[in-house]
Design a protein around this nucleic acid. Sequence first.
DNA 1: CCAAAAGTGTTCCGTCTACACCCATGG
DNA 2: CCATGGGTGTAGACGGAACACTTTTGG
Lengths: 225, 225
Amino acid sequence: MSKYYIEHQKIFVSVDCIIFGFEDNQLKILIGRRQMDPGCGEWSLSGGFVRHDESVSDAAYRVLNQLTGINQLFMRQVGAFGNIDRDPGERVISIAYCALINVKDYDKKLMEEHHMEWVTLNDLPPMYSDHRQMIEQALQMMREKIKTEPISFRLLPKLFTLTQLQKLYEAVNGEEVDKRNFRKRIKDMDFIEKTQLIDKSSSKRGAALYRFNTKAYNEEQKFKL
Amino acid sequence: MSKYYIEHQKIFVSVDCIIFGFEDNQLKILIGRRQMDPGCGEWSLSGGFVRHDESVSDAAYRVLNQLTGINQLFMRQVGAFGNIDRDPGERVISIAYCALINVKDYDKKLMEEHHMEWVTLNDLPPMYSDHRQMIEQALQMMREKIKTEPISFRLLPKLFTLTQLQKLYEAVNGEEVDKRNFRKRIKDMDFIEKTQLIDKSSSKRGAALYRFNTKAYNEEQKFKL
DNA sequence: CCAAAAGTGTTCCGTCTACACCCATGG
DNA sequence: CCATGGGTGTAGACGGAACACTTTTGG
């Protein structure tokens, strides 16, 4: 190690993941009780330390992958949290990531193994360290992005109804929107494609199932909700 | 150190600062040539390592303060950069911060001492490591925020003309805007106050000087440009 | 007297919002 | 047959964009 570095101090670096899901018309996040000290028993995001042989984002992917078993998931950095005493045991700097997953893709067995639970956002328990703050920041980011980027589909099955999509928007933004205006906006976006399939699970009449066409979106990115 | 940590590895953590300034109707950033290896001689943002006795944001403040001598400056986290090989010497994770300063507040002597220079954004040289990427990300963030948050005033003197403010917007967004529409929007924001003072430095007729009233803004935050 | 920047309103157009009724079907 | 959620259009309000001329004064 060259002289340049030697006078400085190394620090533990971890990642923490805010995992969003959508179920029962509610936005939820995946949290669990810490299995070890410090903070054993407290509600916590899932995280892990960054190793020397992986980038920070790879570490987040690794944590998410171990936890959910999902391979290609949507992930975005929320920010670094670096207060001196944020970890009661040692000096640890943590980089928060948020991920959006379709709840149904998530293996329930893995969930139980890791002692994780889906918790409604409006009903969060007190949390370990600064995890609550991480969640708030992730949520704020999500609220901004969901209006201009097609990330909502990450929280839904491949085939979804417009009502589902609308309820998701309402859950994220915390306010109801007009059905007709919402659907008008959808119609303007050709990459949200109506299929011939009908979903009868939520109504007697049945609702048309839609699909997000990634290729069509990439050709003409006009997203506005 | 408890067993929980002992199996993990510590990592160097640094901060890097993207310092924006506005001069000659151009958005500029403050960069310098690295004085030490690795990357000695390459153009670089100014940065420093995070110490055990300071939070990450405190480290950024410290670096900015040492460099500029300015006490109360505007700072915001851009994000963490954590590729394995981003630092050619050792594994270093860096948190980027951007700061907005009024160029005139910056002591030129300090600037020379630290071998820093103001460089126009459109004319950036190749830069050390991932610093170019940090700049791009900071710039993108700034473009978003400048529309809805009153941060532009950080780049201007306390008293400024509307033309100055407009040129700043044009420089950040890279496109010209209509003078009358711009001024109409300004009129709607009562916290941008016209003073009785006149600036004659840029025109024969003279332009009214304006002031940003922080208290008035805090009472009614309606910012839109 | 003229060049150079400051300052000032109106019209038009497109976008967003508000709003209510019929449809299809399972039970 | 009726309760439940699915599906559709229009009119009016509002906000944003385009646009040109007068004023002041130092040199």
